[in-house]
């Protein structure tokens, strides 16, 4: 058993364990920290698959940016010592049965499908290749979605500022 295989099972176990803890923890700040571990484990899987750039993006944006944003909003909106009520039995039954039925269906379909293995051998993707494809307008070029997502991010930033801005007249009077 090579080190890669051991590492894969270790990472998968961590991811699944912390994902379960994320949705069941009764303290909200702990749930956010468990989510951070799930995202770091996913970055580890990307490293295993030899996509170093993607793993770096995952660490920087998800683990660095999104989790910090979520923790900030938790600190702004709820008490640290607050604990959630236990979910009621019908809800647990409904959520659990939906998850069980869905995963059983998907796993059944997956296991009965035979994937065609690749003929070519994959090698480590170079940074030059990623940059060239991201910026090319020809075949396999991704310049249009790249530009679109820059506009989307700008719009999201403006919208977030406008929505979260205090309306000073109304708040002051009431």
């Amino acid at each position: 058993m090579s080190l890669n295989v051991v590492m894969f099972y270790l990472l998968s176990a961590t991811i699944l364990l912390f994902a379960l803890l994320t949705v069941t923890s009764r303290r909200i700040l702990r749930a956010a920290v468990y989510l951070l571990f799930v995202l770091i484990g996913t970055a580890g899987l990307y490293f295993l698959l030899d996509y170093q750039f993607l793993a770096a993006v995952q660490l920087a944006i998800y683990a660095g940016g999104i989790v910090i944003l979520i923790i900030f909003s938790i600190l702004l909106t709820s008490h640290i010592s607050h604990r959630f009520k236990r979910p009621t039995l019908p809800q647990v039954l409904m959520g659990g049965s939906v998850a069980l039925a869905g995963s059983a269906l998907v796993l059944y379909v997956l296991m009965n499908h035979s994937f065609l293995p690749a003929e070519v051998k994959g090698e480590v993707t170079s940074m030059t290749e990623i940059g060239t494809q991201l910026m090319s307008t020809g075949k396999n070029g991704f310049v249009l979605p790249f530009e679109l997502i820059s506009i989307l991010l700008l719009a999201a930033m403006v919208v977030a500022i406008i929505i979260a801005k205090k309306e000073n007249q109304n708040i002051g009077k009431s």
């Binding site: 699944l16 994320t22 949705v23 909200i28 989510l35 979520i70 869905g102 995963s103």
Partner: peptide, 26 residues
């Protein structure tokens, strides 16, 4: 797959908006 359905389950059983957002991230 398991991670996806853990997220779905969390989206159903949680009542707090931020924890639901975390399930969507999953």
């Amino acid at each position: 797959t398991l991670m996806f359905f853990i997220g779905i389950c969390g989206f159903i059983i949680r009542h707090n908006l931020i924890t639901m957002l975390m399930s969507v991230e999953l």
